[in-house]
Design a binder for these strands. Sequence first.
DNA 1: CTTGAAAAAAAGTGCCC
DNA 2: GGGCACTTTTTTTCAAG
Lengths: 151, 151
Amino acid sequence: MDKIDSKLLRLLQQDASRTNPELAAEVGLSPSSCLRRIRRLHEAGVIDRIVAILNPAKAGRTMKAIITVELERHGEQYIRRFLDMATREPAVIQAYSVSGETDAILMLRLKDMDELDALTERLFREETNVARYYTAFVIRTGKETTEIPVG
Amino acid sequence: MDKIDSKLLRLLQQDASRTNPELAAEVGLSPSSCLRRIRRLHEAGVIDRIVAILNPAKAGRTMKAIITVELERHGEQYIRRFLDMATREPAVIQAYSVSGETDAILMLRLKDMDELDALTERLFREETNVARYYTAFVIRTGKETTEIPVG
DNA sequence: CTTGAAAAAAAGTGCCC
DNA sequence: GGGCACTTTTTTTCAAG
C-alpha cells in the first residue's frame, strides 16, 4: 500500500467508471501495471465492490430520517435481535448498535410518511423491546459520501 | 421507468462491475437495448455515479462514530455555517441538518481516538456556536448499504 | 520479481432495420 | 426493441530491465 495505491483508491472512490488507461495516466503508470495493482486491491479485499449510486430524489426516495433507539433490556442478545429485525427492512440503509445511552441508530430512506408509519409500527411494537425512540428528519444534506479517506 | 429499469437499477446498485451482456441476459434484453436503457438512466440522472466501495478495516479506518449536535443559536444561517464547517472535514462522511431538538447529525470514519480528538477540537470550540454534542461509537454494524429501494 | 508492450478476446458504440 | 459492423477496452502472453 504505497502512495500510488492510495491515489488509485481515492480516484476509484470518486469515479469507478474511468477506464484503466485513464487511471494509469493519472497515477503515472503503464496500463498493465495499473491494472495489476487494481486487481491486487480487489483480491486483498481493500476494494469491496463497485456499485452504482442513485440520485434519491429521481429514484423516488426523497425522505431521509435518522432514528435513535433505546431498548428496554440492553443485553447483547437483545441488541442483536433488534438490529437483525431492522436490517430486514429495505428502507433501512444503515443500522448500528452504539455506545452510550442510545442502543441503536438507524438511517432510513423513505418514499413518504406512510412508509415510515408502517415501518415504525413493525419495529417499535410492544414485543420489540424498545423503550424509547426518537425520529429526526433530514432537512438538509451537507455531505453524503461513500469515500473513506486513505493514505 | 418500468419493471426492467427497476431491475437494472437494483442490479447496478448491488454490483456495477457487471458487463452489459451479463446485465442484458439477466433482465432478458438484447445487449444493445440494455445499454440504451442504462445510458438513459445515466443521462436522466437517476444513476448519479459509479464508485468503488472500500473495506474500511482494510483501508485503515476502523472507527466509526455518530455525533448529534445541538447549536446555541438555531437560525438557518447558523446551521448552514456549522454544516459547511463539518463538510470540510475528510473524516466526516455524512453531515445532515435535522428536525427536532438536535440540529445536526454527523457520521464519522476515523483512524483512531486522536483523530476524533483533533476533530472535536476544531468543530466544537467556543466560537462554533455548539451548545451540546453527544458522541456515539459504533459497536456493531448490522447493515450498511448504498442501495436505495426501487420499484 | 516487477514493469512495459503487443496481440487476442471481449465489451461498448452507433447506425440500421 | 433487436441485429450487425466498427471502435475501444480489457485481458492474456511475452520479452526486457
